[in-house]
Amino acid sequence: MNKNMKILIVDDFSTMRRIIKNLLRDLGFTNTQEADDGSSALPLLKASDFDFLITDWNMPGMTGIDLLKAVRSDDKLKSLPVLMVTAEAKREQIIEAAQAGVNGYVVKPFTAQALKEKIEKIFERVDA
């Protein structure tokens, strides 16, 4: 796994973005950027070459699930690995995210270990 990969963290709460950023730094990933909802994230994703997207679900403006669908339907972005980190815990939603092509799903509140495992699993598959 390339520790220098460029990661976009999308969450409407700055404290949650900060927590994720810190956990990523502990895992050795320091090349991160932030956005506070899907509609501010999408232009960033299109304009730059991100290697990984971590997004919340429930955000004002564009939600994480809509961002995921927009990413999957964009020719340039469609194979971008996406990890959902969200408090949304309904089975229907997890199924919806899976069908929309999410690469991993972490429910809040989460542990540093859970985040690490999911990221490793995603890149094991991507690199394979």
């Binding site: 429930n58 408090a87 949304e88 815990a89 309904k90 089975r91 919806e96 972490v106 809040k108």
Partner: peptide
């Protein structure tokens, strides 16, 4: 209800939600 709902405050009383990461 399929829309976003935020944190589930009573997962033990609901059968449409997961109880944690293991369930996911």
């Amino acid at each position: 209800n399929i829309g976003p709902e935020g944190p589930i405050i009573n997962p033990d009383k609901r059968n449409d939600v997961v109880a944690g990461q293991d369930d996911v």
